[in-house]
């Protein structure tokens, strides 16, 4: 299990939270997703042999939220 934190551009609509959390939640290999609305971060716990960081980043980007930086631990 790995943890990644993605920094997004400032989030403005609270409905984004649900959108990102539910879409990532449907991605296989993703254990948990938490959107930190006020710091505009997405915290994801995932199984690294099922899904890659690039893939998760891709999903967030495709939803229309460009990822500005990321930290994997």
């Amino acid at each position: 299990m790995k943890k990644a934190v993605f920094q997004l551009e400032p989030l403005t609509c609270p409905s984004c939270i649900k959108k990102i959390e539910s879409t990532l939640g449907k991605t296989s290999g993703v254990h948990s997703t938490k959107v930190l609305f006020n710091s505009s971060k997405v915290r994801v716990e995932f199984e690294e042999n099922q899904v890659g960081v690039q893939q998760i980043e891709g999903v967030i980007n495709k939803l229309g939220y460009p990822v500005t930086s990321k930290k994997v631990s």
Partner: peptide, 13 residues
Amino acid sequence: KALQALRLKAFSI
């Protein structure tokens, strides 16, 4: 934005 969300089957304002 609506389209992007729709493609991932997400509902949006």
